[in-house]
């Protein structure tokens, strides 16, 4: 009795070794008596061999080092970004406290604040007194620019001389 030829999917599944053993046995039996299917299996075997071939996938020898260098560069970048944020927050705090301390009449304010109860009223008084004093006292405070410059220089030195060399050597 003639058995039908093996289907394409049957041959592939046979070579993948995903068939139940009963199916495998009947396929093997068919292959012994059918040259056509045997040829089909042989050409599929060539295809599978080429697909399994793990050659020509080589990365350069210093690939790992290159990746490490890049991730460290990014880590340093993130740290610098963080430092910049800290600097701006500090600068803002200094600027605000400078304005308050210089232009707000503290004694006057303290006296008025005692007489009021709500937080909102206290804030209104604080802002109003700041503006009242602003007109009389506004002037160029050179010393604050110098201090800001020294602060920036300090951060720059910290970044270049301390952080960068540290991250460069760690990988």
């Amino acid at each position: 009795m003639l058995t039908p030829h093996l289907s394409d999917d049957q041959i592939q599944a046979f070579l993948d070794d995903t068939l139940p053993s009963s199916d495998k046995l009947s396929i093997k039996a068919h292959l012994q008596s059918c040259a056509e299917c045997e040829r089909a299996v042989a050409s599929y075997q060539d295809v599978f061999e080429a697909l399994d071939c793990d050659e020509n996938f080589d990365l350069s020898k210093n690939f790992t080092r290159k990746v490490l260098r890049q991730t460290h560069k990014q880590a340093v970048g993130a740290l610098q970004f963080g430092l910049l944020h800290i600097f701006f927050i500090l600068a803002a705090v200094i600027a605000v406290s400078h304005v308050l301390l210089t232009y707000v009449n503290i004694e006057n304010f303290a006296g008025t604040a005692q007489a009021t109860s709500g937080a909102f009223e206290t804030l209104v008084i604080l802002v109003r007194s700041a503006f009242e004093n602003l007109g009389d006292k506004i002037q160029f405070d050179g010393i604050y620019f110098i201090l800001a410059f020294i602060g920036l220089l300090g951060l720059f030195v910290l970044d270049r001389l301390v952080l960068k060399p540290h991250f460069k050597t760690s990988p």
Partner: peptide, 17 residues
């Protein structure tokens, strides 16, 4: 960093494929 180096060495072939 050494752990990340091991990670790269382990999976570089998979990524290259």
């Amino acid at each position: 960093t050494r752990a990340f180096k091991i990670f790269i060495e382990t999976y570089r072939r998979l990524v290259a494929h």
